[in-house]
Design a protein around this nucleic acid. Structure first.
Lengths: 329, 329
DNA sequence: GCCTGATATGAAATCGGTTACACTCCGTAC
DNA sequence: GTACGGAGTGTAACCGATTTCATATCAGGC
């Protein structure tokens, strides 16, 4: 079933059938004739032929490090819903935290494959920058800031700054910090910097050195909490770069008979479901992952439709979630 | 940059350039000449043109009810990894549990859009069956069994049967069950049937009526646990259709001063991270979601490459995870 | 009666590849 | 010497749509 057959059956030209589907000039009679034939045959125009001819794929490429993650899957959900609302579809690629794969997918998408790209990167190399600058399709980066690029991300620095300040104001003066790798600008560097600056501003700069670096896993949080506690005796507060690490740390404390929150107060970042459900609940920071994805799509759509986006960088605010203060559920 | 320009620059025909990319007959000299021009120009064949001409998109459509879910995101991860290994890409669609959207995406994908479809459906209507039977591309259903269709799913019935038996053997004779809606064949009907048959087989058939139906949320689990406990006094065991519900139920019990597991033993299904991390940990059933996705892709690939798959229905086994018995972490 | 602009139409070019077909070499078997 | 098969090549048809362009009709304004 192609457009020529439909045209013949309806007694019109191929152009007329095309106009029927694209709201072009067409008389009422022909419209009706075509409608009948289309209904009867169940004809649908070939998407590939349309893509080739119009040079639009109506697809957005989305590159993420993984998908089985509370934060990322929420972001993907937000992106997907916004993409569909705009009549686009999502081509999903997962890098499994392999920078080579990230570049590979980026380059695949650069061709004629998609109309735009949303990239949830972690660590950016010079090669990333080069590739992004030479991109033939618009790219929006989510979760990270990258100079000169369209991006939507969170205020990681102030999130951790405020969290640290809260801990100090609660009288927790012997803080420790479990960080993510510094190569991860947002979750690693920015959050740690928020912690370090806050303790300095509050007159206890020596705490800035009380940190260890963990992977993004529960087990690593467990292990590194042990290291930190051994190294620095008498900790009364522990701030972790992610909820996942914080859960691991919490389990370490519970396993070793340390009372939470009485002896040590624990916080993470991400407002994940588990942070609210674990006992005792974690103090955490709410990140609007869905919103982040939606805004990224909005920026992309403006570029696709108008050739440019009003917004170039969007920083989203965060707020602290402390269930010991206001009860949820 | 199109194939004609490359051909001219290399002093060969368009066919030769095409053969260069598709491992056709080509002499060493021409191959080298083309290689040089390609390297120099960074030329890449248009994917759209290839799709149009070859009638292959090298894309698999994946339809899921949502993505921000522990079980589904793991399945998507498994599917995606297997798809990429086979040189395909993933077009992802989320239905948000709307059956209309499910049909809509199914029909979109039926056209020329993708080479194959993986469908994680929940409730199948006659219209689903009709559409699946008339599908022009191979479809594999995951997570559910549907007569006559290629499918990979779990042994939900025996999972719950064994779990219930375990509870009874542990001396918990006053069981209650929190079910998912019966329209959901796997998580709803099959699991409940496993529960009901087990209690009957073990000589306490009257328990089969002790159930309520909840949504797939923590809050619903919380609420329904309350209803069940009010209705049936003296419960000493509670089996839930999903971990999420079980977590809600657990919180209800904790909030109401009921000791877990001493007074009431609680179990879910899914072996989610939260089931292991919550205190006290849930008894749960391990489902191989990644594997489920991988096998679905394998079945799809066999159909695409050989015109048919050796496997038609694959039922995956489950095993009970009980941390009170064998310690993890 | 003539001009203008909106509506309506089809022929044909175009998007960028793949591949069937015909044909030329060239080495080898008989 | 002829037949044969495989390697290597180019021409041209084809995949299935959109869109430009030329043209036609008709209404209304003057």
């Amino acid at each position: 079933m192609n457009i020529a057959e439909i045209a013949e059956m309806a007694g019109v030209s191929r152009a007329a059938v095309s106009r029927y589907f694209n709201n072009g000039y067409i008389s009422e009679e022909k419209r009706e004739a075509i409608r009948k034939v289309v209904e009867q045959t169940g004809y649908r125009p070939s998407i590939q032929a349309q893509m080739l001819r119009t040079r639009k794929t109506r697809m957005i490429g989305v590159i993420v490090p993984k998908v089985a993650s509370a934060s990322i899957s929420r972001m993907v959900e937000g992106i997907l819903s916004a993409i569909n609302d705009n009549g686009y579809q999502m081509l999903l690629a997962v890098t499994q935290n392999d920078p080579r794969k990230e570049l590979e997918y980026l380059s695949t998408f650069h061709g004629t494959q998609v109309d735009g790209v949303i990239l949830a990167g972690t660590a950016f190399t010079p090669e990333h920058r080069r590739m992004l600058q030479n991109s033939s399709v618009p790219v929006v980066i989510v979760g990270q800031y990258l100079a000169g690029q369209y991006a939507v991300f969170h205020d990681d620095y102030h999130a951790t700054y405020d969290l640290t300040k809260l801990f100090l104001e609660k009288g927790r003066k012997n803080l420790g910090y479990i960080s993510a790798i510094q190569q991860d600008q947002a979750a690693g560097a920015d959050r740690y910097r928020g912690f370090a600056d806050a303790v300095r501003d509050m007159g206890c700069g020596e705490l800035a050195e009380r940190f260890v670096t963990a992977d993004f896993t529960v087990d690593s949080g467990y292990e590194k909490a042990g290291e930190l506690l051994e190294k620095y005796q008498g900790l009364d507060g522990l701030i972790c770069a992610t909820d996942t690490m914080a859960v691991g740390a919490l389990r370490y404390l519970v396993d070793h008979g340390i009372k939470v929150p009485e002896q040590i107060l624990v916080a993470g970042h991400g407002d994940s479901e588990i942070a609210r459900l674990i006992t005792p609940p974690l103090i955490t920071v709410h990140y609007s992952y869905e919103k982040c994805g939606e805004i990224a799509v909005q920026m992309l759509m403006e570029q696709l439709n108008q050739g440019g986006s009003a917004m170039k960088e969007v920083k989203l605010g965060c707020y602290i979630v402390d269930q010991s203060v206001k009860e949820t559920l």
